[in-house]
Design a protein around this nucleic acid. Sequence first.
DNA 1: TGTGAAAGACATCGCGA
DNA 2: TCGCGATGTCTTTCACA
Lengths: 154, 154
Amino acid sequence: MKALDAIDRRILTMLQANGKATNKEIAGVLGMSITPIYERIKKMEEAGYIKAYAAVVDRDLLGFKLVAYCNVQLKEHSKEYLEQFESQIASLEEVSECYHIAGMFDYLLKVHVQDVEAYRAFLADKLAALDNIGNVQSSFVMKPVKWQLSLPVE
Amino acid sequence: MKALDAIDRRILTMLQANGKATNKEIAGVLGMSITPIYERIKKMEEAGYIKAYAAVVDRDLLGFKLVAYCNVQLKEHSKEYLEQFESQIASLEEVSECYHIAGMFDYLLKVHVQDVEAYRAFLADKLAALDNIGNVQSSFVMKPVKWQLSLPVE
DNA sequence: TGTGAAAGACATCGCGA
DNA sequence: TCGCGATGTCTTTCACA
């Protein structure tokens, strides 16, 4: 697929804001008929520009009262150790995101738990249970100031 | 709305994985008919358990080659300064997430930009242009190890 | 590429158990 | 609360400009 044009990008913006927007709605806003909208979306899905559609749930209502970002420094940095750590971390359900980062730490984890006690249990029983964990520094989210899934594609 | 039961949670799991899953598909998996699925989803939408539906786009394909987490320490911490910083940050399109955190810094920003130069420009022209910015420490994402939007609701 | 129309699938809403 | 059936809407495809 070629690069996206302005129309594709406007469609993406609308779908990021509302994944259930109908082709008809989009066509109406863009002043086009339904078919080209349908075909453009299909192509962007096939080309991977649109990776998925998802329902966004409310963390608080579902009882995940505590979100923490957890910076981790490993002791050993050989390839085997990194791969081992990554596969172990990926299997922890509390960890929704994990990045290998460049900076003062090796990995950054985003952790969702019910409360502070659950976070303590996560650190003590799961994270610290892994070999090779060096320094760990946690930041607790007190207030989300901004959260948007969408990227400014236009 | 009362608390979610096991069926609601299974529905949420499916919708988090695929926001376009049809009621028919879900009904089939859960061994129920379409109507109760439809009504349960409707109730979860109205009660706010489901906040939105969104298309998930591919950052890399769209040219956002650099993701950075940026820890910010402010100089002044009076209410007015915090509110001013938050409203200014929220208007920056590079910032997809911003949290007021407890820990070694005051705020954590997630920043999406095209490349390192764009990040430098963001820091120099936008972030540093704000009053009241003290210490700033950035971590660059080298490799996403795990990324999931969904929460383990079951 | 885009438009318009037609067929099929789905969401939505009564009614009954 | 759930299951079934009717209706309107959307998706999907096809012929054509």
